[in-house]
Design a protein around this nucleic acid. Sequence first.
DNA 1: ACAAAAGTGTTCAAAGTACACCCATGA
DNA 2: TCATGGGTGTACTTTGAACACTTTTGT
Lengths: 208, 208
Amino acid sequence: MSATSVGVAVDVVPLGLRDWSLHAALVPVGTTSRFAFPGGRVPPEESLDGAARRWLAHHLPRKDAFVEQLYAFGEPGRDPSSRVVSVAYLALVPRTEDAHGVQWFPCDAMPPLAYDHGAVAEKALERLRAKLSYTNVAFGLLEDPFTLADLQRTYESILGRELDRRNFRKKVLGLGLVVPIGKRRHGPHPPADLFRFAERRLVAMEIG
Amino acid sequence: MSATSVGVAVDVVPLGLRDWSLHAALVPVGTTSRFAFPGGRVPPEESLDGAARRWLAHHLPRKDAFVEQLYAFGEPGRDPSSRVVSVAYLALVPRTEDAHGVQWFPCDAMPPLAYDHGAVAEKALERLRAKLSYTNVAFGLLEDPFTLADLQRTYESILGRELDRRNFRKKVLGLGLVVPIGKRRHGPHPPADLFRFAERRLVAMEIG
DNA sequence: ACAAAAGTGTTCAAAGTACACCCATGA
DNA sequence: TCATGGGTGTACTTTGAACACTTTTGT
């Protein structure tokens, strides 16, 4: 990149649940002990969304991830020859599975991050928390089928507060966020009704 | 720009009220009869926000505009040598005043737009409508002091529906969105209390 | 039998919505 | 005096929040 131009990159923040705690996928940066989100330059023939999906797929080969643009970052650095604007993306992956050297870290205990990826992570969490409250975006974190307790734990974990079980059930059923599949899960004690999301596309709905 | 790189630009969508109807500022594009939002390349030494404010100030020299990043646009064009990613910004200007060749058009009757500025305009309106409902962002559209009728007309115009005068008053006073300045405006008939915004920085608050 | 989790309704408080009258002013 | 628009309060409805017991199952 010459000193008179600005490059474009994408960075993807892959988030997922592990043991009902939100984790982020990171890759080690060079020889340092720092980590960064997957991403890289956008070639001229590729769309931003395409580049984000490509980088996500490279590290976490899932076809069904929810991907959404977050924000364009990139203050001018000290060295003008390396000026890059990075378009950050949020990606939700239903199960936290590894591939190609990514490591999952709890979002409340992330390792030192390279570049401005601290701010990127902030933005991603903020966006996820907000969307959880007024959309059905939780479908990106949970595979069908699931119990209402699973869904509630998902919400509680990300919102950081406990929810009333009965009010939660009334809310998500009343809104039509989830629908019963007519089966039950048998586990350690009493069987629980199984559900799936009514829609697996982003839909706005006022949830608590 | 060479065929192997992607350039970065900003585009600013300046919105303001004229006769209680939302208008957008546009500049003519070259020799065509199309219009575009103000904007241009981002030099390596300038931040995105800085470039957005610079372009805004160039056309509409206000110091107090509300400016916020919207979205990064830029599908690969037909010609790879001209690939540019444009970071769009929303700008709110309290009074729709002209400068340097911009023209104001009603948002519901815009002229043909160049590039992907139709999508950019969509995004800006969507964002403004959303923020109007859960922040005090209206301060960007209205100068102090104003009457509650002024504020209500602002909301009604942008949300596209009528609001009840008494409920509106209860809401905005109860939330502390505005505070009375203790003066009244004398006009065609009975005098109206004047108000100012309690805060002129973005604050979240659940408004209807 | 007991521990652990799932299912289920009601009550109360708060917020939102609908609605009508009087008054001050300028013409 | 009249037309216009601004100011004010109440009743009703809807929504949200709090809360306890019974049932099922595996150990």
